[in-house]
Simulated assay, not measured.
Amino acid sequence: MSNSPAGHVVRSTVSPNCETGSRTPLRTFLPTADGISIDSVYDRGSVVYNTSTPSTRHIVFVMAHGFTGDVDRPHVRRVAAAFARYGDVVTFSFRGHGRSGGRSTVGDREVLDLAAAVGWARELQPHARVVTVGFSMGGSVVLRHAALHQDHQRTDAVVSVSAPARWYYRGTPPMRRVHWLITRPEGRLVGRYGFRTRIHGRGWDPVPLSPAEAVPRIAPTPLLIVHGDRDGYFPVDHPRMLAEAAGDHGELWLEPGMGHAEHAADDALLARIGDWAASRAG
């Protein structure tokens, strides 16, 4: 039980038994460990599983969107629909985004939001394999979550798309604009009213574990790093740094012609990610 952005008390009333076959999405607010209400949606996939066959074990994708996204954005719904061909899908809005409570900490406390979503997926499908897939800021969050959570909120496979390897990067014009949005009062006003994103005004203290520092702690959980060679936010030294930190444990796909995050992930790439997840987590 927790407080919604509108100040109402919210309790999840979703039954953990999802074996009825209903395709109606489930929507609720999930409480995080630090008391933030996270707007979350559970969509049943189109896959018919044979539970007696290990190779077709049920999969639930938990998708972590990029900065200024939210669960209702068309690009988030498109990606969720693509993954629904391979399993069930949990989408959610990070704190400070959309209808979720709190303010964005741009990748720090968001690990708690993802943990709540993964925990919900495990309650709804206790025998399923859970795959976290994150984009941009969400890509950094799935890496840190996998390194930090080895309990019931753990993940069985990790896919990080268009993620930074290190913090405070300002080497491209888009990232300089992002830093203006985060660090300047007028930028945070633009974020609030232009992007439906409420951003915390205080800096990190302490500075969280960086994605590159998190990656070695993920093993033996399967890890896929995906990045476009035309990413306008984070150049290719970021995925290469992550892959180097992963060593033999991680797999890197450097995609020719691809830009940044969800908008640049076409249906063919999403299908390949779905196939990878099915083979590693199934």
Rank of each mutant, 00 (worst) to 15 (best):
D237W: 15
P256Y: 04
D237Q: 15
W253I: 10
W276I: 04
G228W: 02
F234H: 08
P216D: 03
A271D: 12
V226F: 00
I218D: 09
L254E: 13
L242S: 05
E255Q: 15
A271H: 08
D275T: 13
A245C: 04
G257K: 12
P256K: 06
G250N: 11
R230D: 04
G250L: 11
G259C: 08
A265N: 03
M258E: 01
G232K: 14
W276H: 05
I225S: 06
R230K: 14
P222E: 05
F234S: 05
G250Q: 10
H238Q: 05
E262Q: 10
L252D: 15
R272P: 09
M241N: 09
A271L: 02
V226T: 01
G228K: 04
I273W: 00
H238F: 03
G228I: 03
G228C: 04
D229N: 14
P256I: 08
W276Q: 04
D266P: 13
A243K: 14
A271Q: 06
M241A: 13
A264Y: 07
L254N: 10
L223F: 02
I218K: 13
H249A: 14
E244A: 15
D267N: 15
G247F: 00
P220M: 01
E262V: 06
I273C: 01
V236E: 14
A261H: 04
P222K: 09
E251P: 08
L224A: 07
E244M: 13
A268S: 14
G257E: 08
M258D: 01
P239K: 12
E251C: 06
A264I: 08
D231Q: 10
